[in-house]
Design a protein around this nucleic acid. Structure first.
Length: 222
DNA sequence: ACCCAGGTGGCCC
DNA sequence: GGGCCACATGGG
């Protein structure tokens, strides 16, 4: 890994500006995650598709209130009553699609691996391939789950990453696999580094900082 | 009354 | 292989 590249230098620059993640992001990047943490993060990754995080927060709160904020809980609820699951997910938008996606995800985890930890315990490449076979889980959602819920070393390419690439003129190429390889080749292969860098890319894109984020008190959800 | 928000899959050419 | 559209809600 070459430390003279633009990407690595930008990483150091952001690190100097923001330092270690705290509060909200610390939950996503924290050292020890429980199975419940991982489940919530995976659901968040699916529910946040094309909507703001604030809407996701409400849907997660609904699930928690009904005591189904777990792979097992959503599976049981969705199996008997997909309509009720849809109702709980309503605030996150696209709720009929998302109910299907999230139920399908839980169904897959339970039927094929009998639990999220077991699933994540496999080789990164296998996990990724399996996630991508699920309808409604594309590369970005799969990688978000793997990086933040699974602590696997995959770099997430999302709208923020693309804006970052444009802003700092890193390359003119924007296709997913190309950008992912570019980031991974120019950073130490370390999930913590990817998590922190990606978190800082989002902050940089929002023009905000850790303190402002923590004011929203989002960490209670994770 | 708009427009946008951390996507995905299907369809078109 | 890129361009466009449906999917649905909440906030500014």
């Amino acid at each position: 890994m070459n430390k003279e590249t633009k990407i690595y230098k930008l990483y150091l620059k952001l690190l100097g500006k923001y330092g270690a993640p705290k509060d909200f992001w610390k939950n996503w990047c924290k050292e020890k995650k429980t199975t419940k943490d991982r489940e919530k993060i995976a659901f968040g990754a699916i529910l946040t598709q094309r909507v703001s995080w604030l809407n996701v927060e409400k849907a997660l709160a609904n699930l928690k209130k009904e005591n189904v904020l777990s792979v097992e809980g959503i599976y049981c609820l969705g199996k008997n009553d997909i309509n009720n699951l849809e109702k709980l997910l309503r605030p996150s938008g696209f709720y009929k699609q998302k109910a299907k996606k999230i139920f399908q995800f839980c169904n897959f985890i339970i039927k094929n691996h009998s639990g999220l930890e077991n699933f994540l315990n496999q080789d990164l490449k296998i996990c990724r391939e399996q996630l991508l076979t699920l309808r409604g889980i594309g590369p970005e959602t799969a990688d978000s789950i793997l990086l933040y819920a699974g602590d696997k070393p995959v770099f997430v390419i999302d709208e923020y990453t693309r804006r970052f690439v444009k802003k700092y003129n890193i390359t003119k190429e924007f296709c997913y696999d190309y950008l992912q390889n570019l980031f991974q080749q120019n950073l130490p292969r370390d999930a913590k580094v990817y998590q922190n860098f990606h978190a800082m890319i989002v902050l940089d894109g929002k023009g905000t900082d850790w303190d402002l984020v923590s004011k929203f008190n989002l960490q209670k959800l994770i």
